[in-house]
């Protein structure tokens, strides 16, 4: 059976990890390659790098990070953050990324999603959506969650699927950083309408949250950051728990 994936996400700025593991005495705790390697050895099913560098020049350092990671880490690597052109995507894939996550640029220019999917294949295009709850619906936010686009999130995800995205990475802005658990209603509604895999993100704080993301939210993969980085939970612990709850995970 296909396994539910557990994906740790690392924030990288100017080639250095700014939100990542800080419970281990890694020789160089700011090195994204060392952190990705640690997670891959400890049960991660994929790794996600989010580039939060402010300038375009600094983003080229990300290519270097991806190249070095591809030399040591033999599980899938998703890279996102500020990806805005076919050239960006090509460069990242060439450096060794397996999937590219696109957010704001896809909102500003839908053609980017369809062109990228056509050129490189849907399997490497992850459409990232930042959603915030309004009365009875969810709105899509762009520019790192700072701008309300007024677009309905559920409709937008459907559109992204039609444009050729291979996967949706859905972040609840209401839950992100709260440790109150995923927005299960949002996840469930998104997953029920989508024919492509859904990655849940935002709000996971304990073991039950992971379980609910799968059983209630119907997510195909779960992305988390701080619970792993601060050592509150290990990926192995999460997987063992999910497995005991009857959820299929990869335990080697």
């Amino acid at each position: 059976m296909l396994k539910i994936r557990i994906i740790p996400c690392l924030d990288v700025k100017d080639g250095r990890v700014v939100k990542g593991i800080n419970f281990l005495n890694l020789v160089d705790a700011g090195d994204p390659v060392a952190q990705a390697h640690f997670y891959s050895k400890n049960g991660a099913d994929e790794i996600c790098f989010l580039d939060i560098s402010a300038s375009i020049e600094k983003r080229t350092t990300m290519l270097n990070v991806v190249e070095k990671t591809a030399e040591k880490v033999f599980i899938p690597l998703t890279v996102g953050g500020g990806v805005s052109s076919i050239e960006n995507i090509r460069d990242l894939l060439k450096a060794g990324a397996d999937k590219i996550s696109i957010n704001t640029a896809g909102i500003l220019n839908e053609n980017l999603i369809s062109q990228a999917a056509e050129k490189f294949g849907s399997q490497c295009i992850v459409a990232a959506v930042d959603a915030k709850k309004e009365k009875d619906s969810w709105a899509v936010y762009s520019h790192g969650g700072s701008k309300n686009t007024g677009i309905d999130a559920l409709e937008w995800m459907q559109k992204l699927q039609n444009l050729g995205a291979g996967e949706i990475l859905l972040t609840s802005m209401d839950r992100d950083g709260t440790k109150k658990g995923f927005d299960l209603e949002l996840l469930n509604r998104a997953s029920s309408q989508l024919a492509i895999p859904l990655i849940a993100s935002g709000g996971v704080g304990n073991l039950d949250h992971f379980k609910d993301g799968v059983l209630v939210g119907k997510a195909n993969a779960l992305l988390a950051a701080s619970v792993f980085h601060f050592g509150e939970l290990s990926i192995k612990e999460v997987k063992q728990y999910l497995s005991n709850e009857g959820i299929n995970v990869r335990i080697e």
Partner: peptide
């Protein structure tokens, strides 16, 4: 089902006398 089939899944060996995969157990 969601497509693509994306993620880790089990591989069950049918032909034991092969040279490419030697593990007896299913592997992801």
């Amino acid at each position: 089902l969601k497509l693509p089939h994306m993620g880790w899944n089990e591989v069950s060996i049918k032909i034991k006398e092969n040279k490419i995969i030697k593990e007896e157990k299913e592997k992801n």
